[in-house]
């Protein structure tokens, strides 16, 4: 029986999927990370300095309105980090690209810090405005549950030795936690009770905060988004290197 050469070579992934290759991913991230770090620092500095020093007090909330430049961007990133993890987890489940599983793992600690900042600044803001640090309001409660999901997700990665099994199980947890990420965003629309106000930013201009607060807030949000991207890219690179180190050590141990 003769073995014939295949007529066509297996198709190599192109475009977006080519970055599922760890070497290509690392090369890309090394190239764009310096720009991302600098842009995030510039946007954060401009947004926060503009918001803190050069915006007036709100006629009802006084100077506490300045907390908006930290609270809203961090809350936004807390929810969107989970959605990024969801997309990466789905890519892992469907296409089994290791880089996507590692990107989800890398994003979780960033997401948990964003959630913590949103919770802490929310409590500090709530005390003088609502007269309480905490209320079992739908949005606050769903945010606290999202925070616990982040901790559970990180703990699950650490608890399972086999990385592929860990990626499978954390992907399922990520799918379940997405319900609370959605609730965190839309809880105020689902239930009318509660202390938390509706969206501060909306495509519907009627609902937005006044322009004097709106523009520095947009810059601060851009800073948080860029910082998130820089951190996740860098951390994914770290995870890829750790995985490669473990693989080399395991191969060495077998020899």
């Amino acid at each position: 029986m003769s073995v014939t050469e295949p007529k066509t070579q297996p198709k190599r992934p192109s475009g977006f999927w080519s970055y599922a290759n760890p070497v290509k991913f690392l090369a890309l991230s090394e190239r764009i990370l310096p720009t991302l770090w600098w842009l995030s620092v510039i946007c954060l500095a401009v947004g926060l300095i503009w918001g803190f020093f050069f915006t007036p007090d709100d006629f009802r909330q006084g100077s506490t309105v300045k907390i908006i430049y930290l609270h809203v961007p961090s809350a936004l990133m807390a929810i969107n980090a989970w959605f990024m993890m969801l997309v990466a987890s789905l890519i892992w489940i469907v296409r089994r690209h290791h880089v996507s599983a590692l990107a989800a793992k890398a994003a979780a600690p960033v997401g948990v810090v964003m959630t913590l900042i949103a919770l802490v600044t929310g409590a500090i803001w709530g005390q003088p405005m609502w007269g309480t640090w905490w209320a079992w309001d739908p949005r606050l409660t769903s945010f606290l549950i999202l925070f616990l999901f982040y901790l559970g997700y990180i703990a699950l990665w650490e608890a399972i030795e086999d990385p592929d099994t860990a990626a499978d199980l954390t992907s399922v947890l990520c799918l379940v936690g997405s319900v609370f990420a959605v609730l965190s965003r839309y809880a105020v629309n689902f239930w009318n009770q509660g202390l938390h106000q509706g969206a501060s930013l909306s495509l519907d201009k009627e609902e937005n905060v006044a322009d004097v607060f709106y523009f520095p807030l947009l810059v601060a949000i851009a800073g948080f988004v860029l910082l998130f991207l820089a951190l996740v890219l860098y951390r994914t690179g770290t995870e890829i290197r750790l995985r490669r180190t473990r693989a080399l050590l395991a191969r060495e141990a077998r020899l």
């Binding site: 100077s63 300045k66 913590l116 802490v120 500090i124 003088p128």
Partner: peptide, 19 residues
């Protein structure tokens, strides 16, 4: 920052430390 100085400054301090 008036009477809310503690709230505003502690928000910024906590967030910047965490970041």
């Amino acid at each position: 920052l008036g009477k809310y100085a503690d709230a505003v400054l502690s928000s910024y301090a906590a967030s910047l430390v965490l970041l």
